[in-house]
Simulated assay, not measured.
Amino acid sequence: MFDKFSRSWEMVKASAAVLRSDRELMLFPVLSGLATLLVMATFALPVLALKLFSGGLSVGGVLVGFVFYFCTYSVIIFFNCALVGAAMIRLEGGDPTLSDGLSAARSRLRAIFGYAAIAATVGVLLQALKGKDNNFIVRLIGSGLGLAWTLATFLVVPVLVSRDIGPVDALKQSVTLLKRTWGENAVGQVGIGAAFGLLTFVAVLLSVGLVVLAAQASVALAFVVGAVCLLGVLLLAVYQAALTGIYSAVLYRYAVSHEVPEAFRGTDIATAFLPKR
């Protein structure tokens, strides 16, 4: 397990090097975040105005929840496909632009919407299992299924971008590749999530401290410091999303073609996919 962690961490660092060489890739998570906020605002206003959930969960509430999940997933998956599409071009030695990534995602719109419908259905079911009205065992099962779903679908986006297949076949391909990359898949996701989770926690603590100190001087200064700190935390989230997209593209590309990108020549990526004994 230690070997897998060490090897995966090398790949994460190499992914960061790719991101540093092409910072335009960070634009995709930014656009994704803005579009997601727009979707949330679009649903929040009518839900609050009509008080759809004031009387508990209803059929109408479930339908609204599904549509919300579908729209949100469609936006997130679209921009993830754009990010991975641009990352693929970079890994092949090209110099991708924002337009290149968006074009790659637009060409797969039908499959993206199909996968978003599947992901929305799973999302609604998982949220139902993890609801606070359920007992601890049911919530635990829901959390476990959520983790398994996250791992199994980690390579769906690279598959959708690279192959002209539907969402169901893309899911099957992702699960098949998971069997060959499960160690790097799990350690990479957990490693990136843990590292940025810790960084975000520290950043939030520092931000609170700086805002409190600034407030002793003036309220206006506290607002300015708070805005700058919030921007820093958001940038961490953007960097994490971009890094995760690049990492998934690298895993998929090598698992399928066994070609080592230039940025990964110094890593042990080749040993990550040796036949299982």
Rank of each mutant, 00 (worst) to 15 (best):
M1V: 07
G183K: 12
L171C: 07
A227G: 15
Y247K: 07
V59W: 05
I192P: 01
L109V: 15
L251W: 03
Q216N: 11
A82M: 12
D100W: 07
G114Y: 01
L213Q: 07
R20F: 07
A104D: 08
T97H: 00
V159S: 10
A214Y: 03
V208L: 12
S162N: 10
G123F: 02
F136D: 12
L155I: 05
V84A: 06
N80S: 13
L206P: 04
G93T: 10
V228M: 12
I118R: 02
T42A: 15
Y73L: 15
L145Y: 02
P261V: 00
V138W: 09
L210K: 04
E10S: 11
A111W: 01
L109Q: 13
V211F: 06
A105L: 08
K4G: 14
V124P: 01
G191P: 02
F68L: 09
D133K: 10
G101A: 09
S107Q: 11
G55N: 06
D268M: 07
V168K: 08
T200S: 09
D164F: 00
L236H: 06
I246K: 01
Q173T: 11
D95E: 12
L274N: 10
R106L: 12
V202M: 13
K172R: 10
A227T: 14
G114T: 03
R180W: 09
V187C: 10
A217H: 07
F78A: 08
L27P: 04
F264L: 15
L178S: 11
G191K: 03
S143H: 14
A119S: 14
L210D: 08
G209E: 05
L125A: 12
G55R: 06
C71M: 09
